[in-house]
Write a protein that binds this DNA or RNA. Structure first.
Lengths: 140, 140
DNA sequence: TGCGAATCTGCACGTCTTGAAGATTGGCAC
DNA sequence: GTGCCAATCTTCAAGACGTGCAGATTCGCA
């Protein structure tokens, strides 16, 4: 996802308005590696801007996702998560605390795949599930 | 997933009761390659057993999943899907009609993976998204 | 055949997300 | 700087999916 300044320009260029709510969310998401949910982002945003509505958070995140500035992820943790990292990457999720981290996978061209007959595949996502270091240690 | 007859024995062996509702669901899921949701299975079951409740369908499918007789899949299509195929395999989903098919992937040992630092990975799932042959043809 | 525990049904609730309507405001024209 | 209009924000309600609960029913064993 681009910088808040770049997004401000991009929004105006598209005829979209730049509101304080949007700017705040630009800042909160830029470089964010926590893969937050709309709800958790709403919590954080509320601290800096009491009165901001959850609906606006959903709306803005979905707009950014539509514009390709961030990816929305359904990792099976109940709520959709948002990732400003739009590089080609994948994710690992802790089954206990739902912590999410980015994972980079290479060599997937060498995979041998059966069953895609006729499907026009546009996206491939690899999801790793398990326990994060902290939770793995706790469960010993 | 094992045959209805085998499941009947297995349930009794575990002290679980074998009801007509469960037996119907055993039959409907055995060899089922449609990856149905609880709701769609409920529709089918209702035809053969009017009055069966959606709650029972959820309950039974979850029990079977817990017993390892089938897998529950969150493929991002809104509702969880159930798959009696418990082989090591993956899935491709049509983004338009939500059709799901099994995909077999081999050679994943050769993948080079960065970012799993410390995670104890217990499961890896690969999800392909795109258009099924029918939808791809329709959109030309 | 009868009993007790497991199961089924029906309903309500919880979570996540979106739709709709009215109030507010950004951004351009003047 | 001022005013206008469309875009946006907030609030509320509803939709989709899944589960908890309570009472009625039924399986499976003695």
């Amino acid at each position: 996802m681009r910088s808040p300044a770049d997004l401000t320009e991009a929004f105006r260029a598209h005829g979209l308005k730049v509101t304080p709510q949007r700017q705040l969310l630009f800042r909160l998401m830029h470089g964010n590696e926590c893969h937050p949910t709309a709800e958790s982002l709403f919590q954080t945003a509320s601290e800096q801007m009491p009165g901001i509505s959850l609906r606006t958070v959903y709306q803005t995140l979905n707009d950014l996702a539509t514009m390709g500035e961030l990816r929305s992820l359904d990792l099976g943790t109940g709520a959709v998560r948002f990732d400003p990292n739009i590089d080609d990457h994948h994710h690992v999720v802790c089954d206990r605390c739902s912590d999410v981290r980015d994972v980079y996978v290479s060599g997937s061209d060498a995979l041998s795949i059966q069953g895609l007959d006729g499907f026009a595949v546009s996206n491939t996502s690899i999801l790793f599930n398990g326990l994060c270091p902290r939770c793995a240690a706790d469960s010993e």
